[in-house]
Structure formats: structure tokens, C-alpha cells
């Protein structure tokens, strides 16, 4: 923003309101018009000062007596937002997105719809949080706790029990924990594991190689090479970013617009399509998983694009030059 400092503009606006209050001369009318025309912010500052001056008219009620004023207009929505306030943000998001399930032991199958996130207390005291469009099968026995991630993503917080190892299967990939917390995301060709607490072992059933130990604060990717051998890549990661979904959030940390759209598409029935011409633009930000409109609006503004909607498809395309 250039030109006059905003504090000067506010000062001048108050001056105009003071003059308008005693009545403007015709010369002043013209001067006011000139003043207003020189900067958009002045129009806003004047309205704001006029509104504040107007609000002071409420004091007129004091002239009669305060009791009558007490019966004056009452705020229509004083408490409307209170109901939401008792819950912590993350829990509120989870509860809003999916019901809490009580799991029957053995053979339980849980599938979430698009946009749905379920919090799933397991019978052994562990907790699973199942992400959008995912499917999990729980098979607990006396000797072990087996969970199959059929598709999608889930985060597990595992209750300690050395006698019954907790193992998550995602295709050929295996992730085993004793007492810890971690996230598994199954892709078609690979599995991603983010460890948020403790240590897990990961390995592939298609490879006899020894398991890899992955500690908290790391992300491991397990895939199979063309030779069939399992590969594991581990790197340190801020677990908040990939796991923001548990709070109903998507964090875009220097992600391309196209990749960000793919993330949103995991959570919503609407399909976001980004024109390749702008799909490579990088974004930083955080959004609620169900706030597609907020994201689309912000992204289009940022890249100078235009939003085109047709049925369930929302496209962001380059705007024609002005």
C-alpha cells in the first residue's frame, strides 16, 4: 500500500465527521469529494468514523433514565456460538466428522465414506482413527492383534501389551508395535508410515530381509522394486503435517496446486481439477478438509485463476488477461 499513512487518513476522517456534524459549507463539500477521490481507503475510513460517531447516539438514552435504556434493543445472537465451545478443536472436528464406534472383538470391518473420519476405540484399549475413504479390518485373537488396512489411511495409538503384538498389514507391508502411535497410509504401489510416538518395526511379507526400525518423528515409505525386493526409505518429518487430517485439517507445506487438489479430493465428493498451466504453482496454507470452497476461492485468487463449476467438477483455470 502506498500514499498517506493510514493513521493520517483516520485522523482526517474524524475531522470530516466533526465538520459534517456542524454542517459543511459548499466549499467543504467539494473539498470532501476531492479528499475521498484520492484514495480508496479514505472512503472506508470515513464510513468507519461516521459509524463510531453514530454509535455514540446511543448515549441519548442516558438523558431520560438508565432504566428505560435497559429495555433497549437486545443482541439477537448473544450465545449462538457457545454450544461449540466446550469441545477441543481436534475432538470437535473428529466428532463432527464421524460417529464414535464401539468395536465388537474379532473380525470387525470398518469403512469410511468420502469426507468421513472415524474414531475407533478398540477392545484392547488401543485407538484407531480412520481417514476419509478408507477401509480397516480388525482381527484380534488371544495371541495377537492384527489389523488390515484394506485401503486408505489410519492412525493407531497402541495400548501396551507385550504378549499380543499389534500388527498392521497394508498389502505386503507390515508394521508392528508394542506400545506406540503411528499412521499407515496405503497407496497402490507403496505404503507410508509416520511414527508419532515410540518405535515400530516395518517389513514386507514378500521379502525375507530383517525388519526396519522406525522411531517417532520419522516417515518411512515401503515399496517393492522391479526385482521384487522390498525397499524402505526413512526420513525425519514433522508429524503434524501428514497427520493434520485427524484434526480435520489439511496442511499445505509448499505443495503444488495440483497435489493440493488431490489431497482435497480424498475428502470430498466434489472433484477438483486444476488446469495444467497453473497446477505447478506452489501453495502454503492450512485448510479444513471439508472447506473445498474456501480453498478454491483462495487458490484461484492467489494464482490469478478463474473457477468453473460443472456438476461435481470444480475446475480452476487461468483467467483471461484483463
Amino acid at each position: 500500500m502506498s500514499g498517506e499513512p493510514s493513521s493520517r487518513i483516520d485522523e482526517d476522517a474524524c475531522g470530516w465527521v466533526a465538520r459534517m456534524d456542524r454542517g459543511l459549507t459548499s466549499g467543504e463539500e467539494a473539498a470532501l469529494a476531492t479528499w475521498l477521490a484520492s484514495d480508496d481507503r479514505k472512503r472506508g475510513a470515513l464510513l468507519r468514523a461516521q459509524a463510531a460517531f453514530r454509535l455514540l447516539d446511543r448515549a441519548r438514552a442516558l438523558r431520560v433514565d438508565a432504566g428505560e435504556a435497559e429495555a433497549g434493543p437486545v443482541d439477537e445472537h448473544p450465545h449462538s456460538r457457545r454450544a461449540l465451545l466446550g469441545l477441543g478443536g481436534g475432538m470437535a472436528a473428529l466428532l463432527a466428522l464421524g460417529a464414535v464406534w464401539r468395536v465388537r472383538p474379532r473380525g470387525q470391518h470398518i469403512a469410511t465414506g468420502v469426507g468421513e473420519i472415524r474414531r475407533l476405540p478398540l477392545e484392547d484399549g488401543s485407538l484407531a482413527v480412520v481417514n476419509s475413504d478408507s477401509s480397516v479390518r480388525v482381527a484380534f485373537s488371544a495371541g495377537g492383534r492384527e489389523v488390515e488396512l484394506v485401503k486408505g489411511e489410519a492412525w493407531f495409538e497402541v495400548a501396551h501389551n507385550k504378549a499380543r503384538p499389534f500388527t498392521v498389514a497394508a498389502g505386503a507391508a507390515r508394521v508392528r508395535a508394542v506400545g506406540t502411535a503411528f499412521d499407515v497410509r496405503r497407496h497402490r504401489d507403496r505404503s507410508e508410515i509416520v511414527v508419532t510416538d515410540g518405535v515400530v518395526k516395518i517389513w514386507s511379507t514378500r521379502d525375507a530381509a530383517a525388519p526396519t526400525l522406525v522411531a517417532a518423528g520419522h516417515r518411512a515409505v515401503l515399496w517393492h522394486g522391479v526385482d521384487g525386493a522390498a525397499r524402505v526409505a526413512v526420513r525425519a518429518v514433522d508429524p503434524e503435517q501428514p497427520l493434520a487430517w485427524r484434526d480435520g485439517q489439511i496442511i499445505l507445506d509448499d505443495m503444488t496446486l495440483a497435489a493440493a487438489a488431490d489431497e482435497f479430493n480424498r475428502y470430498n465428493k466434489m472433484t477438483l481439477v486444476i488446469d495444467p498451466a497453473i497446477g505447478g504453482r506452489r501453495m502454503i496454507g492450512s485448510f479444513r478438509t471439508n472447506d473445498v470452497d474456501g480453498f478454491v476461492e483462495a487458490a484461484a485468487l492467489l494464482v490469478g485463476g478463474r473457477v468453473a463449476r460443472a456438476g461435481n467438477i470444480i475446475r480452476i483455470v487461468p483467467a483471461p488477461p484483463p
Partner: peptide
């Protein structure tokens, strides 16, 4: 204000080995 990031509630009690 909530911070844009932050894992506030998820550090629930986890029994360690």
C-alpha cells in the same frame, strides 16, 4: 487463536515398554 499447526490433544497417555 489456534495456531495453524499444533498437536494439542493427540498426546494421549501411551503406555511405554
Amino acid at each position: 487463536m489456534r495456531r495453524p499447526r499444533g498437536g494439542r490433544h493427540e498426546r494421549r497417555a501411551v503406555v511405554q515398554d
